[in-house]
Design a binder for these strands. Structure first.
Length: 933
RNA sequence: GCGGCUGUGGCGUAAUUGGUAGCCGCGCCAGACUUAGGAUCUGGUGCCGAGAGGCGUGGGGGUUCGAGUCCCUUCAGCCGCACCA
């Protein structure tokens, strides 16, 4: 029997499928374990060899846990809504549902070939109505809840209304967009419309006029994490700031809990750090400044209350509402000119070009502590969206303020003894205060505390915690997303009744905005809501009396991915996102594997979403993902050929310096070990058909470089091709063998022969000349040692996700067994089970070859017996002054003194001592001997 | 600028956590076999050196009997955040 991987892999994949080997259900007799992959967006390009890396790692862990007696939930699905399918629809007119389905089918085909243990009965697609029903449901719940700051949890809006009716805002501490203050009488006197508008100020899902990131090229707004350096992350289109009425989720209310929760999860420090940065907690004080000669005051936020005596000017963000209030008549034209100039600059330009710009407003503020009058300036270095959009500038101790003061010749007052501010500001929070009234003589740390206390006591402001985390803008002016279950009466949003969900995505004729600039859903023929009949009806019937318009925006990409891990627990449930029974059993994800690119998007939103559902009592765990591992990126390894300028002649790598050449990417699939296949090259592209070559030793050597794996670099390797040539088990092993899971590393197909050879060698322990050679003989001590040290190593490696080293441990094991021609059942049987998580097909085959009739997945993972590992002798390296000179075999039982005695009894020792007397002898029993001379 | 991670043969990497640096694999070299291959098997392969030996984990310094591993410093690369007050 040959190792016929093609036949064998197909056979077992079929067997697993037909016998539902990977079907999972609640089983209270076994401990549960939930292993999840970040589900993919099914792109048109299909999978390349980098995508399955994380899937293989999680698959190994899932299989291992199962063999260890756990009931393992290991599902897969698709993040099926998204921009690329819609962009494609715009270009081709094909319905995004059609292309999405096609892409999903392709993904599935590719995934199936690799032999994953997914329970496909639990597959979800975010674009399916029975799934997005629950996305809409969660949104309605968010609309119906507000965040109570005191309780630090979401509470029903109904309770808030009751409080307003009896006491107004008194005693209410609700997270809100804008602090409001009204009495019960005032509330009760308001119209329904007015009350609804006020409630939007509190709801967790709310509609508000916000400054948003508008991307004209994509025709939609984008969330902060979808924009980087002023351009859209997807597509790289310019993004501008615009005020629009949009749905938002009050993620910022959960800032503190999102931060605290990080302490409870087992994630990498770098990922936690990224989330901490994104949440951006800063403790400080909010100070009230009165404006001189006007009945106006404004607040600023500062983390350096200690520097209050050094404030020499104030700065407002150009977008601040205060600008209009504080601009005096003589400064009006200058301010207007500055504001319009600022508006013209995109955010990108502002970031790229750090010129100091600004204009004086004409007004003066009064320092609430020192009483000094200070000029109020306007500058775009102050952000409208952070804090209050106004700052107190302390040029001596803040580098941005310093640059501004220098540019406009404003005073700089040093506040720390001995600091030099002649060239730059002193930003460090250390030293002793001076020029600071009652703070003089204190350290900076003490002064911050003292100043805060003073501010609170004198009622000059309040101690406050600020977060950088913004609410998530939740509307997209696009077609291919979840429709909002929302209709509008007099411009005010109302939710569809829960029992009418899902609100289905309507058909439209073109996937473009309407002629009047409304989102694509504006084209839908049936997009009205008959309130009395509770049905969707023709858009033409909208009369704003009985039939009302439905929301035209759709939800963003992160909507569907925020709670999908919960749905896998109970994917067919028609009465809830997840049943209490399923949720109580599976709880949350024990191991989540995916890329770092979701660090600030998906992983913040889903934590927020989960916490919200936790507050409602719908889920039992506060954090969704207990342990998280980021797999590294697989980079491409590109190959180059060198064309001699103005010719069709190509020169081999080491001769290219003799010519003037152009470097050209060449398809890595026609290169082997950096040697170009000349015939394939000529056939690759018509322009190379008559190419000529300057060779070295009859070969054309290509250059190479590690780059991103992409079509344009011709370095994309398709897993299908690898499976076809080497089999899925070889692919799985090689992906793991490449290097540590979390590290980025280049893919080079050339190395794959090594692991393929390993599998053949393993096969060779079972079959020789087509004969099964497995024997029932008792294994030797050495064979048992080989097996058990491998069990020990591989177990430790799996637990620590060090899969590259376990593959090499398997190789060492098989090398050792081959060397002694060991084909004994007592050794091979446990070895096959040990290998099953990594190479399930060949393991299943060999498990059956050994006479087992049930799947290897139901075997028991072997346990290391330390007794077999005990050594009777130790090879001591004997070193002199730290340099190893010779090895000495000694009984392991010897103690320190006995080892020393043996070493000095050896004549080699005398040779290296060369008559000198040792100053010191170090003996570490079982390890080394070092003689210091 | 701030924060994090990583630097080991020609390449991907390993090192029982302070104890023989280079395991495993690719590649390369030599040999065997021969249905001449992108097959299989055997041996070799960090660098310098004929050899004894010396050097060697980005560079410099330190702690230690002993450092890839710990400390200080410096350089390079990758990632995250970045007018966040």
């Amino acid at each position: 029997m040959e190792y016929n991987f093609r036949e064998l892999e197909q056979k077992w994949q079929k067997f697993w499928k037909e016998n539902q080997i990977y079907k999972t259900g609640i089983n209270k007799d076994k401990p549960k374990f939930y292993v999840l992959d970040m589900f993919p967006y099914p792109s048109g390009a299909g999978l390349h060899v980098g995508h399955p890396l994380g899937y293989i790692a999680s698959d190994i862990y899932s299989r291992y846990k199962r063999l260890k007696g756990f009931n393992v939930l290991h599902p897969m699905g698709y993040d099926a809504y998204g921009l690329p399918a819609e962009q494609y629809a715009i270009q081709t007119g094909q319905h995004p549902a059609v292309t999405t389905k096609k892409n999903i089918d392709r993904y599935r085909e590719q995934l199936d070939k690799i032999g994953f243990c997914y329970d496909w009965d639990r597959e979800i697609r975010t674009c399916e109505p029975d799934y997005y029903k629950w996305t809409q449901w969660a949104f309605v719940e968010m609309f119906n809840h507000y965040f109570d700051n005191k309780l630090q949890k979401a509470m029903p809006v109904a309770g808030l209304i009751k409080a307003f009716e009896t006491n107004g805002t008194v005693g209410v501490d609700a997270n809100c967009t804008e602090e409001l203050c009204f009495s019960a009488e005032e509330w009760n006197a308001k119209t329904e419309l007015e009350q609804q508008e006020i409630l939007l100020n509190y709801r967790v899902a709310y509609l508000a006029d916000l400054k948003v990131n508008w991307c004209p090229a994509l025709g939609t707004v984008l969330a902060n994490d979808e924009v980087s350096e002023g351009v859209s992350v997807r597509g790289g289109h310019p993004v501008e700031q615009r005020v629009m009425r949009q749905w938002s989720l009050r993620v910022s209310a959960y800032a503190q809990r999102l931060l605290d929760g990080l302490e409870k999860v087992d994630w990498t420090d770098s990922l936690k750090e990224t989330q901490k940065n994104w949440i951006g907690r800063s403790e400080g004080a909010e100070l009230v400044f009165n404006v001189k000669g006007q009945d106006v005051s404004f607040e600023v936020f500062t983390t350096r209350a200690d520097t209050i005596y050094g404030v020499t000017f104030m700065v407002l963000a150009p977008e601040s509402e205060l600008v209009a209030k504080l601009t005096t008549d003589d400064q009006k034209s200058a301010v207007e000119e500055y504001i319009s100039a600022t508006k013209k600059r995109t955010e990108r330009e502002r970031i790229a070009d750090r010129r100091v710009t600004g204009v004086f407003s004409g007004s003066y503020a009064i320092n609430p502590v020192s009483g000094t009058e200070i000029p109020v300036w306007i500058s775009d270095y102050v952000l409208a969206g952070y804090g209050t959009g106004a700052i107190m500038a302390v040029p001596a101790h803040d580098s941005r303020d310093y640059a501004f003061a220098r540019h406009f010749n404003l005073p700089i007052i040093p506040l720390i003894e001995g600091c030099d501010v002649s060239d730059e500001s002193f930003d460090a929070k250390e030293g002793i205060m001076c020029n600071s009234g009652f703070l003089n003589g204190l350290t900076v740390k003490e002064a911050i505390a003292a100043a805060k206390k003073y501010i609170e006591e004198k009622n000059l402001g309040r101690v406050k915690v600020n977060y950088r985390l913004r609410d998530a803008i939740f509307s997209r002016q696009r077609y291919w997303g979840e429709p909002f279950p929302v209709y509008y009466k007099q411009g005010m949003p109302y939710m569809l009744p829960m029992d009418k969900l899902p609100l289905l995505l309507p058909e439209i004729d073109k996937y473009l905005p309407t002629e009047t600039g409304e989102p694509p859903l504006g084209r839908a023929a049936n997009w009205g809501w008959n309130e009395a009949m509770q049905i969707v009806t023709a858009s033409s019937e909208i009369d704003n009396a009985a039939v009302f318009p439905l929301e035209l925006s759709t939800m963003p990409g992160f909507a569907g991915s925020s709670a999908y891990y919960l749905r896998y627990m109970d994917p067919k449930n028609e009465n809830g996102l997840v049943s209490a029974e399923a949720n109580d059993y599976w709880e949350n994800v024990d191991l989540y594997i995916g890329g770092t690119e979701h660090a600030t998007g998906h992983l913040i939103y889903s934590r927020f979403w989960n916490k919200f559902l936790f507050d409602l009592g719908k889920v039992c765990k506060d954090e969704p993902f207990k342990r998280l591992i980021n797999q590294g990126m697989i980079q491409g390894r590109s190959n180059f050929v060198y064309r001699v300028k103005d010719s069709n002649t190509f020169v081999s790598l080491n001769l290219k310096d003799q010519y003037e050449t152009t470097q050209i990417h060449v398809d890595v699939n026609i290169v082997s070990n950096d040697v170009l296949d000349l015939e394939k090259f000529k056939a690759w592209r018509p322009e190379f058909s008559d190419a000529e070559f300057i060779l070295e030793d009859g070969k054309y050597h290509c250059g190479w470089a590690v780059e991103k794996m992409s079509k344009s670099m011709f370095n994309v390797v398709n897993p299908d091709d690898i499976v076809e040539r080497y089999g899925a088990d070889t692919l799985r092993l090689y992906e793991m063998f490449l290097g540590p899971l979390e590290q980025s590393k280049p893919w080079d197909t050339n190395g794959i022969d090594g692991v393929h050879r390993f599998l053949k060698k393993l096969w060779g322990l079972f079959y020789k000349d087509n004969q099964l050679v497995v024997k029932e003989e008792t294994p030797t001590a050495d064979e048992l040692k080989t097996l058990h040290k491998t069990i020990k190593k591989v177990t430790w490696d799996i637990e620590n996700f060090s899969y590259n080293t376990s593959v090499s441990a398997f190789m060492i094991c098989v090398n050792e067994l081959s060397a002694v021609k060991c084909s004994k059942r007592a050794i091979l049987e446990p070895l096959v089970v040990l290998l099953a998580p990594f190479a399930p097909h060949v393991a299943e085959e060999l498990h059956h070859v050994l006479g087992n009739t049930t799947t290897v997945n139901d075997a028991v993972f072997p346990v290391c017996n330390e007794e077999y590992l005990v050594e009777s002798t130790v090879k001591y390296p004997v070193s002199f002054n730290g340099k190893v000179r010779f090895m000495l075999d000694l009984p392991a039982a010897l103690n320190k003194d006995e080892v020393e005695k043996e070493v000095f009894a050896n004549d080699q020792t005398a040779k290296y001592l060369a008559g000198a007397s040792p100053k010191k002898v170090i003996v570490v029993p079982g390890k080394i001997v070092n003689i210091v001379m």
